[in-house]
Every structure is written in C-alpha cells, then in structure tokens.
Design a protein around this nucleic acid. Structure first.
Lengths: 148, 148
DNA sequence: CGGACATCTTGACTCATTCCAGAAAAGGAC
DNA sequence: GTCCTTTTCTGGAATGAGTCAAGATGTCCG
C-alpha cells in the first residue's frame, strides 16, 4: 500500500486542525482498509498511547465529512472505514467471515446512477455491495466437505 | 400490490407453523413496506392486541429466512422489512428524511452481478442502494442539506 | 506570546437487538 | 378427540455500538 501520504498536509488542505489523535486515526485507516472503529481505536492507541474512544468516533466523523475517509456499513456489520476516496469503487462482502474487498465499478463512471425509475429522487450516489463467499470460505466448505 | 395474499397458505407452503403473531407481522409487513421493527410491533399489536417485542423479532427472523420477507438495512438506519421478495429490485434512500422507495433493477436480470474483478469471491447477490434526496426534501431545501 | 475556539477526556447513557429459561400452544400421530 | 413432541411466546436482563454533555487541553492565528 502507499507508503505514507502527507496526512498532515491532507488535513490542513481539508480545513481540519492537525492533532495527534487525528494523525493516528488517519494513518490507521490508511494502513488497515475496512477496519472497524474498535480496531482503529486499538491501532491508534498502539501508535500514540492513550486516545479516548470518543475522540476516535469524533475524528472518524470529521474525516468522513471532510472526505478524507469513507464510511461503509454492510448490513449486519459495524461501521468500517477506508481511505480510498474519490475513485468510484464498490465492495464484495463475504457472508461467512465478513471480509471485505474492493471492486472497481464495472461501468467505471458513476455507474448505476441510472436507476430505471428514480421516483423523482435526486440521486447522487449509487452504492453497490456484492454478497458472496470469499475464496477461503468457499474452499473451506463448498457444501459440507471438511478437508483438513 | 396484491390486496391480501393468503398469508396462512404462504406460511404453510414455507414450512412454517401458523400463529396469530406471525399472521399479524406478515400482514403488517405487506401493508407497510420498509417499516422498521418497532413500527411493525406497533402495527401487529394494533391488530391482535398483545405481542411481545421478542416474538416480533423472532417472527421477522423466521419469515426472513423462509424467504417470505426481505430485510434491508441502509447505512445509518435500523433494520427494515419488506414483502417484495423474489423479484430483483433495489432501493433509493433519502439522505434527509430516510424514506425508502423501490427501484426495479436497470439491468433487469441479476444485474451488476458482473463485478469487474471478483477477487475469487463466489458472488450470489448484488445489492444496490441509490442515495439522494426525495422530491419533498429536495423541494424543501434545494441546495443546503439540513437534516437536523 | 496570548487569547479564542476547536478538539479531546471522562463517564454516563440510549437504543436496537439478542440471550435466557420457563410457560404455552400448534401440529401430528393414534 | 386426545396425548405427545416440537416450536414458539413471554418477560426480564444483558450486550454492544454509538451518542451526549461538560469541563480540560491543545491548536491556530494575530
């Protein structure tokens, strides 16, 4: 993954104050895509020592609304965050283990933004989630076989 | 939508025992698409008097796994249920008021099931959520999104 | 350097959903 | 119709992500 973007500069450009908790959280999200809040809290603490969970929630919200991170929330899962923003990509989620992988949009340009009937809504985003089973889970028990 | 399907027969066909709470919940979901669990509880109680919230949760789970209702869970919202199952349709969600509307898939046949790169996943479903603003909210404040 | 204001800390709290264990009811067999 | 087994319902408590509030602290700007 990308070594280490200039997080500090990114934040300033977004009009955010630069603080230790924010740098730690942003770095954590970059280093661990699709991590949940609790994991991020752990990673951030490993980096800078003490950080309150409230601070992490606040920071994640600030970074999200600033567009530096993106929040994803697959059904049945807690909120997760990723640093890939701006590009148009979606996700594949494993029904068994919950692992998430990125998938570039098949249509490339704001894809499915074309709903067959938009009911008068002003649509600004189409979120696609592919559900299935990851290679590991599919291999582990295609139906009932237990090989190891 | 169909006036009043034979709920009892539907349940028996699905191998479920027919109980008063189940009939009430299934009827409630049919009558109020996209209702959340609490609303369904209220509607069910209005129909048959007392029902425990636990019963409603259990019934909804049973109906969901039997394929009689579908559970949808837009990010930032509680679980909601709808009775339209089997057909391939997606949803539009209003960012301001949270209202949900059905949208038939633009591609009609298991649409976006074609991910550009499936990472080896065995994909069995593509869920699409269109985010935007409903006619009412868009009209109320065209530019500034003022959720609350 | 110092003030003003955003951000972090602490700790309690909300709320959807789930877990538990006993009581009750539905379905099926005879 | 009656009895038995299985499944469901009740009521209460627990879980856990996420939020609220108030005061302490740190950042940024002049």
């Amino acid at each position: 993954m990308s070594p280490a973007p200039d997080f500090e500069h990114l934040m300033r450009a977004a009009g955010l104050r630069v603080t230790r908790p924010r740098l730690a959280v942003l770095a954590a999200v970059h280093a661990h895509p699709h991590a949940d809040t609790d994991s991020i809290l752990g990673i951030a603490r490993a980096r800078i020592g003490e950080v309150s969970h409230q601070a992490v929630y606040d920071v994640l919200r600030a970074l999200t609304s600033a567009g530096l991170v993106r929040r994803i929330e697959p059904a049945g899962s807690v909120a997760r965050y990723e640093a890939r923003v701006g590009d148009n990509h979606h996700h594949v989620v494993c029904r068994s283990c919950g692992v998430i992988a990125d998938v570039d949009c098949a249509v490339a340009y704001t894809p499915c933004l074309t709903a067959s009937d938009d009911h008068g809504f002003e649509i600004d985003e189409a979120e696609v989630v592919y559900w299935g089973r990851c290679p590991d889970c599919a291999g582990a028990s295609p139906s009932a076989a237990v090989s190891n």
